[in-house]
Design a protein around this nucleic acid. Sequence first.
DNA 1: TATTTTCCCATGATATACCTTTGGTTGTTG
DNA 2: CAACAACCAAAGGTATATCATGGGAAAATA
Lengths: 165, 165
Amino acid sequence: MRRFRGEAENKVDGKGRVSIPAPFRRVLEEGDPDWSDGFNPNFVLVYGRRNNKCLEGYSLKSMNDVDNLVSRLPRYSKEREILERLLNSQSIYAQVDENGRIVLPPKLRQLAKITSKAMFVGMGEKFQIWEPDSYQEDMELMEQKLSENNLEEEIYSHLDDKEKL
Amino acid sequence: MRRFRGEAENKVDGKGRVSIPAPFRRVLEEGDPDWSDGFNPNFVLVYGRRNNKCLEGYSLKSMNDVDNLVSRLPRYSKEREILERLLNSQSIYAQVDENGRIVLPPKLRQLAKITSKAMFVGMGEKFQIWEPDSYQEDMELMEQKLSENNLEEEIYSHLDDKEKL
DNA sequence: TATTTTCCCATGATATACCTTTGGTTGTTG
DNA sequence: CAACAACCAAAGGTATATCATGGGAAAATA
């Protein structure tokens, strides 16, 4: 299964339209069970995460994976109700149009402070949409934290697989 | 599984096209599950590592191994989100063309300061792409550090496998 | 009717596919 | 053993397709 990779900064026009980066579209197509050549994939936009600083896009398949994890929690448990609220009420279906664009509703643009440009960021099984300056800030903050305590090696150590084999 | 071995310096033309050394192509073919004779392998280029001084190429299989390790971390955990950002946003899919070349996007060339030549360096499960002079510098610095403290023997001692047997 | 939203078409820039040339190595044949 | 043919890797050029983006008409909504 292909993953969301790379970054792309695209323009947002007066009508709120943005191009989804072409490589991301390929992933969305692959992740939509109903998609077939010549048609436009559906996907899910979540806007309640990361303190509303960015939006997150999921292919239908990967959103389904997340939903299934929630479904494993005990019905009516506090945790499940909260997660269901966060993931379901704070998300919408979106459809890519003929030209590979979507319309970002005004509400979502306001939340992420997106005006004339949007930064698309590949995160593997999902992607994020940021206001470009906020993204750069977030990235620099992360890199700073990693370098100042020499955490880079530590973070990669989570990938050490000796105990799992 | 074949590994990336050796060095090769190839020209980069105005469009950013470079030939992938033929032996490296054999490894990429072997590491692409969808590859079959007569077709061109896909692979992954990572540009966020080693302080952006070089690019790194992974076969789909070995990148997949890394991705799977990340997927074992709890979804939405801080560690996982950081790793996904580092590994996914700072990488792209690339495809070898009919003639055994790839195009290096301008952004990646700038990061690694690559202009007219590129040095390909085998690193086993991955390979690196350097601006030739930067590579020589990096290599000399490493060798110098090793020799001035007589660390060569020490570094090889890490390969001691007695505890594993 | 005024305003927003959806659909459709147009365009310039860029990236991809295709074809050609060059040089080196191998190996075949007279 | 020399000459030639066949092959393959690297590198260069041109044509075609795709992508991001802009604008306008039609449809829907208020």
